[in-house]
Design a protein around this nucleic acid. Sequence first.
DNA 1: TCACATTTGTCCGTATGTATC
DNA 2: AGATACATACGGACAAATGTG
Lengths: 245, 245
Amino acid sequence: MSHAEDASAKIIFARIRSRRTFEEVCSEIKKLIIKGILRPGNKLPSESELARQFGVGRQTIREGLRLLELSGFITIQRGSAGGPIIIDTVLSKISDLLLDAFQMKKITIDELTTARLDVERVLLNHVIRNAGDDEIKSLQDNILQARREIEAGTHPFTTNSEFHNILAKSSRNPIFVIVEATIMTVVIDFLSRLTPDFDGSKRTIREHESILDAIKKRDLEEATALLEKHILEVGSRFRGYRPIP
Amino acid sequence: MSHAEDASAKIIFARIRSRRTFEEVCSEIKKLIIKGILRPGNKLPSESELARQFGVGRQTIREGLRLLELSGFITIQRGSAGGPIIIDTVLSKISDLLLDAFQMKKITIDELTTARLDVERVLLNHVIRNAGDDEIKSLQDNILQARREIEAGTHPFTTNSEFHNILAKSSRNPIFVIVEATIMTVVIDFLSRLTPDFDGSKRTIREHESILDAIKKRDLEEATALLEKHILEVGSRFRGYRPIP
DNA sequence: TCACATTTGTCCGTATGTATC
DNA sequence: AGATACATACGGACAAATGTG
């Protein structure tokens, strides 16, 4: 192949690796999902049935399903009435991959805190301007749920982190949602290495609440000041952290 | 199942799905890579050899390798002397997944431009304070390369996009590197749908150069103004864009 | 509670394509 | 050009999981 070089094309394109059959299977199904023909909750045929329909072996189907599964497009249930099911967890799968990337890049606490300060400041700007009643309610609900978890004696670990993702959603810009999810992936990773801290969690809830109050008043300056204080406070709690051995 | 509900635990935890063998294979190898025992360029044993060493079947190994491949940890070469090879393309694989996510979320040009403005503004702030001579040189080299590509008659498509990723690296904060890579994924996707525009590319190079000049002078205000103008200009070029059919 | 059917998970054997030496 | 080594793909088989009657 390629006896004559196409001079107009440099090394711009990714090397063509003749698509393997399982990749074809994956992208065919992915296409249907992105187009909306297959929707979350829909069940895909069983592996053997897919193999029959695509006219390939079952092993090939399985490898295609592995790709879809890792990409967050499907989940697979075993047993009778099981099989592949369409879901929408692409974002959370990205977080998983990001964790891998971060582990290789060895991020420091200061770098994380700096980035959070910068990003969430601009985030807040959009939230104050764009957030509607439903988003305010989501934030309020998040705080209530965190309180309930404290009362039940469980750690509002995930709930408190989720506050910032809801904040991102309230900006009504999907890019910020993804950027913030990226950053919170690192935050959660750091948090998970700390010993659970009930007082710290309670403090976080109070800080979230005061930030929300400022948002309700559409007071950007106050909200920003409170948010900065909160992020710095959480950052200082990370001090005891040490990288994985 | 779940005859008795565990009341203390909400839907906080990811459902435990008894780890499958191929997942075990994947994470064992991944561990070695993250720990640095296996490094990029190293060759993994062949499928059959891995199957022998792990004491599992070849198909199981294959599915494990699919996961590592999609995660960007390995590539696979066919043919004699081929086999799995360690690489570090995790970040680029994340971009691939992000594209999927963006296609499902249907991002608009205004949302993209807004996010770029906000993020690159704060980025620039760090660049002006932290960039050293080597980073300035990388930016300069990028511009020179783009010029050479124009002269050679090719489109400096990738090179121009790379300018912003180098900008992110110059902030010396790995989080910004990843955040900016995230956003540039979308920008590149939009760009790739436009008909090639030589004049636009030349203009971009000139704008990049003027931004770099301001950075050299450590003039934050001027650099910010130029960057904003540049991003808005590129955004306006997207106007003709229409979502995939 | 207990089979039963369905579906995934895993393994084996074999054939083919492909790249290297 | 031919031999070799590897991934790719197929088919068959059985075990394990899981919902149903």
